[in-house]
Design a protein around this nucleic acid. Structure first.
Lengths: 230, 230
DNA sequence: GTCTATAGGCTGATAGAC
DNA sequence: GTCTATCAGCCTATAGAC
């Protein structure tokens, strides 16, 4: 979704004209929030238009319809995530450091765009992922793959299938951040018999579990598979 | 959702009467499949009735409406999952063994009720989790908590926050199984630059990562936190 | 680019016959 | 318990004025 920068300030609704790019951005922002909250089918174009303070006919005019707006929202989120992680990957440090920064980058992204993980998870459990976002997803998989290879090369990770590392890491992060709202609400309504752990603590846990779990340790020997343990 | 067992065989649609319990079960099964596939708002009561080969007015008659049917579906899934895991927990073995069996039980559940993880994830990313399922979810949290405590007591795990263990484990499993369809479709349509790992391999990876990551190792000393790494 | 008005379809629920 | 018929409401998309 190209959004060329324009100098004009977004005029805040009155009788007169408005920067068309501002309209597009307002629609994208409103759509991201609503689609994340209620899912594609749970949102009407009128809801989006209202939240964006824009006439609903403009959705068809600017994006070509509700579905196309949804795809635009998704694409912008996935593209930004892949871009951010790509930048991170380029920085120096050993695999453990890269892992740390990738996790932090994912967290930072969700801080600035909290809708993204929810949209991601919703899309991931849908019957088919939107083709438009697949290239970005594949880019992220490449990053995880190189992370795994790098770690093994550097001797800080034992050999590990990069696809499994990717599934585990991305799945855990997406689920954690995608469910943050629901967790908070469950807590607020008194359904939980304990306080919620902080995001900070969760990220540290995930990182530590991964680093320790991948360490090329003295090895808890291969033999204890399947057969009687103990 | 109580479903008292009846002896009568489910008559397969003709002019004549049908076991009312069979009707309820057909509706629950059809609803589970469709709600998982398209989400609550993506499914019409007519879709459900058609798939169940039942008149759509019976949804209101038996369940009290679309939403109530959805809740019934969720509740039955969560209850079964919690029940299964509770049984597992009671069996003997050390914490690592219990972990292994809990993971396998989750996998077995999704083999028999593949809709469950999808419904679970959809519900988890929604604004608020259905209150009716919270008790079952809390039961599962109790199981993970006792698993962590047991591991520490037995000396096979280092001290770990049970809430973090729960979030990581359950999140990873739910995401993995909930997204199986989408992954398979992405592969079939040629979007992936590699073959998919087997579920078996993923589960082994998760288990190994967890066991190694939680091991009370020689300890990669506490000090390397925050400060410059390297 | 923006807006109003409206077309045409689908939705969930229910009244009432069987 | 099951079914048909129906209603009122909401949906997306678009034609056409500005």
């Amino acid at each position: 979704m190209k959004t060329r920068k324009t100098p004009s300030p977004p005029r805040k609704r009155s009788g007169d004209r408005r920067d068309p790019d501002a309209t597009r951005r307002a629609l994208l922002a409103a759509a991201a929030a609503l689609f994340a909250e209620r899912g594609f089918d749970g949102v009407s174009v009128e809801d989006v238009a209202e939240r964006a303070q824009v006439n609903k006919a403009l959705i068809s005019y600017h994006f070509g319809g509700k579905r196309a707006l949804y795809v635009a929202v998704l694409e912008s989120g996935f593209a930004e995530m892949a871009d951010r992680l790509t930048v991170i990957e380029g920085e120096s440090g050993d695999a453990r450091e890269v892992l740390h920064r990738l996790i932090q980058a994912f967290a930072a992204m969700t801080r600035e765009r909290p809708d993204f993980p929810v949209l991601f998870v919703r899309e991931a459990v849908s019957v088919g992922i939107e083709p438009a976002v697949m290239p970005h997803l594949v880019r992220v998989m490449g990053i995880t793959r190189r992370l795994a290879e790098r770690g093994v090369r550097e001797g800080v990770f034992r050999p590990v299938d990069p696809r499994l590392l990717h599934l585990g890491l991305v799945g855990t992060l997406a689920f954690y951040f995608g469910t943050e709202h629901a967790r908070e609400k469950a807590r607020a309504e008194g359904y939980l018999p304990f306080a919620l752990p902080s995001t900070r603590a969760f990220l540290r846990h995930l990182e530590e579990l991964t680093v320790r779990g991948l360490a090329p340790s003295p090895s808890p020997r291969k033999k204890d598979r399947k057969g009687a343990r103990r």
